[in-house]
Nucleic acid binder design. Structure first.
Lengths: 131, 131
DNA sequence: AGCAGTAATGTAATGTTATTACATCAATTG
DNA sequence: CAATTGATGTAATAACATTACATTACTGCT
């Protein structure tokens, strides 16, 4: 998917996430952007929907929070399954991709004739520094 | 972990989940149990916390909902990583376990010196019937 | 320029999920 | 039986997300 030109609100939300150390909730983003004219949650959620669609942002289901995609390159092609380690101590989130896991999940879902649309893999624990 | 004797509220919540076709939200459980004297969300959440701890119930992060564990036997030992396919059509949830994925995740987290506490794997899509 | 159609935005209200705080009751034990 | 601990009851509030509707901005066409 080619990354389209972002709108004003999308750009603001993307910048907020990019400059953040870790994941942010929609309401945290909202608060960060009040100075830029944001007033309501929907402004954030609408921007996030698009950014998720473009693959520039990921949603962390177990945190109800969002992070900028850590892949440096553009988002023109799908990166397959994305997985995360999430440190309970410092909040650090590390994104990774693994072909072997992807293959294995594919085999398993295929065996049930299940058509995968989105895969969530989130590992909660403690990072090296916080262990 | 040995499964302890369940309290009244825990039993009610467990029964509600066991007899349900699919996952239920905490508030749906609450509504089902009003006739049995439930009045407040906390009664449900407290019971769920224990049932999760005992491994008798799983939380589906991507749905904010809960399902009874499908393992038939008691819950005295850990089953390692649990994964789910979740059909967007009919809501059917299938629990599965795979040693290969577990091993691979273990290798990957070990490489970052990450100490895993809980792993979430949820695959959204469509089941054979709903494809 | 004028117009129509579409995408983006603004705002309010509401719906859904989860937790905090505090009081009470019940079972166990020394 | 006092003391502790675990379970429960209740109210209030916090946190996360969506619906509905009005308005504005952009695009393409004549």
């Amino acid at each position: 998917m080619a990354t389209p030109q972002l709108t004003k609100n999308q750009t603001l939300v993307m910048d907020a996430l990019s400059h953040s150390e870790g994941p942010m909730s929609a309401y945290t983003i909202l608060d960060k952007l009040r100075d830029h004219g944001f007033r309501a949650p929907l402004q954030v959620y609408r921007a996030l929907d698009k950014l998720l669609e473009y693959g520039m942002v990921h949603r962390l289901e177990s945190l109800n929070a969002f992070v900028a995609c850590s892949c440096p390159h553009d988002h023109e092609h799908d990166h397959g399954v994305t997985a995360f380690t999430i440190c309970e101590g410092c909040g650090q989130v590390t994104e990774f991709h693994d072909e072997a896991i992807e293959q294995r999940l594919s085999t398993l879902t295929r065996a049930q004739n299940f058509k995968t649309e989105k895969t969530t893999i989130e590992i909660r624990g403690h990072c090296q520094s916080c262990a």
